[in-house]
Design a protein around this nucleic acid. Structure first.
Lengths: 346, 346
DNA sequence: CTGAAAGCGCTTACAG
DNA sequence: CTGAAAGCGCTTACAG
């Protein structure tokens, strides 16, 4: 096995110096077309590939972005990461992917490791568990550009790309009201988690706007998972309240509710309009919930990356900007594009 | 803003040389406990973080793995990437994530970029489109360790971690037969795509084993997406064949079939046992297909990474090894663990 | 146990 | 347009 060629190997063959080779390869205006061509020819002949590690060290530009997500094996984040990857690549950056597993400690360690790797910027979605913001303050101190996406910490001086949970919830619940539902229950998350709080506020906003009194009996709080939906629904039944629609704080909560209905009274499944925030990932295929608020993961990833790169390149400043990505209210159905023979996930 | 501290900053404070500092920080046996402690104290006082780029250049170890997946916003691959990330991290590696978008050209470019970044090894799942294997031969030449996962190219001298499509299909179809189905149709993919071919062979194996004659009328071929399932089912109906079970080459194909049944005869949905290869990502929540072959994405990622790291560290050799990860045949239901309040994908 | 020397492969000024 | 010098921040071998 031959050794990997380096700049000097090309230089020697041409009786020039490696500086010129380096410049030629990067199309530096200093170099004549003729030399460039010769250099490139030899380079491809030898199979030369620049050592990006060396380049990073001298140029102090790694062309690398660090990403921290709470989890990756979840539809929403997988889409976000797809959007990040795609946009970063177009701009000539590679991404180092890291997963915090909703763990504050791991999140901190990943951020530190990424900084040590000299990433030029960070894209992070904060773990649910995170309370201590020291690591973010440290990032500010050492001036590493960072953009939050989806889950952010306010007032730390970072830009964030998020969904307007409150408004989206308000609009969606408003639609239910317009369609004639007046006894809308809400299976909520926890108030100390921002999405839980905001979505509930949106629910309340919608009621207020349509002059419907908030009935506390119709609101049950308890988490974000399937089990929470199941328990929440049972709780509603115990309260013996009359409902014509349900707003679930997340898609899994909506599914948990479904299970509860199946057990108690399957006819409710069709009779009670179900609206959930977020979708399953097999959009429009599961016939439940009836309506859902679609969060454009890919777009969130793309916009966050765009902001980050602009910050890295000095085009914009981090200013506690909250960039809201619009959501859409979708009706679930079995329609799908029969034309596009989209590949499956095996 | 202060400049980032480097080894020399620590060294000067202690009146020793940066070599000793470097060793102390890495717990090199050369250094006395006393010195180590002093060094570490000053290091944390200054907020020192090693520059991993510089370390990589001198040690020629980047502690970095390159990953190429055909797509990321898909349940299966998201799980695989999760498994890779998790295992790599435990072993002290970071991963650079790259997406080929099922495009041969992009796949090649990503691999080249990753090599330029000096990743110590590569994990790739080949794009559907890839025909040219030059880039893999080149990897062999320059001796960059690589392991294929899920989609591989045989006989190139790389280890691969895959699912035994043929056996899994055979076993699953065999189960249908055992349960009394004897008129099992197969909505197949294409023969030139390995999973299409292998799963069909598995279907045929099962029939043979149970002495059921293969009826070509029961097999329709046409792709891997929802539309393929829909069309395939219509085609079966046109052939006017009698069926008691269906084996769909992929989960989306199974869903397409569902749509077809809904249109033509919804009673078939319960009457015709549906078995699909792969799942939706919301395991056990969609009440269809009735049975599915579960592909353990996380595990595939983990095992592939394990093999790769062992190869990097010289513990094993690449030998065209095919490591089969076992699948499971699961029955779909609405059960889910009500205890674990698993977080949702917002 | 500690250090002086050399170098990883590149790029950045700066000189000609 | 081309090149000689210096250095990025670290580690490796080798000497003491």
């Amino acid at each position: 096995m031959k050794k990997k060629p380096i700049l000097d190997d090309i230089a020697k063959r041409l009786n020039i110096t490696k500086v010129s080779v380096s410049k030629a390869l990067r199309d530096h205006p200093d170099i004549s077309e003729q030399t460039k061509n010769k250099v490139k020819e030899i380079a491809s002949e030898l199979g030369y590939r620049p050592n990006l590690i060396a380049r990073s060290l001298t140029s102090s530009k790694s062309r690398t972005l660090g990403v921290v997500v709470p989890k990756i094996a979840h539809n929403f984040f997988a889409h976000v990461v797809g959007g990040i990857q795609n946009y970063a690549n177009k701009k000539g950056y590679e991404i180092v992917l890291t997963v915090s597993e909703e763990n504050e400690e791991l999140e901190r360690k990943h951020i530190e490791a990424l900084v040590s790797m000299q990433v030029e910027g960070l894209l992070v979605s904060v773990s649910m568990q995170t309370r201590n913001t020291d690591v973010y303050k440290w990032l500010k101190e050492i001036q590493v550009p960072m953009v939050f996406f989806d889950r952010y910490i306010p007032d730390l001086g970072f830009n964030s790309v998020i969904v307007d949970d409150r408004k989206a919830a308000k609009d969606a619940v408003g639609q239910l009201i317009v369609q004639g539902c007046h006894k809308i229950a809400h299976i909520a998350g926890y108030d100390y988690i921002s999405i839980g709080k905001l979505r509930k506020l949106g629910y309340e906003d919608a009621l207020k706007e349509h002059d419907i009194d908030l009935n506390p009996e119709l609101v049950v709080e308890g988490g974000f998972g399937e089990a929470s939906g199941y328990k929440g629904f049972k709780e509603l039944i115990n309260r013996n309240v009359d409902i014509d629609a349900l707003f679930a704080v997340t898609f899994p909560v909506g599914l948990g509710t479904y299970v509860g209905m199946r057990e108690i009274d399957p006819t409710m499944i069709e009779k009670v309009k179900m609206l959930a925030f977020g979708d399953s990932g097999i959009r429009g295929i599961v016939p439940y919930p009836h309506y859902y608020v679609d969060q454009p993961g890919m777009k969130i990833g793309q916009i966050a990356t765009e902001l980050l790169i602009k910050e890295i390149e000095g085009e914009i400043m981090p200013v506690n900007l909250l960039e809201y990505v619009p959501t859409r209210l979708l009706k679930t159905g079995w329609e799908f594009p029969l034309e596009s023979s989209e590949m499956k996930n095996e």
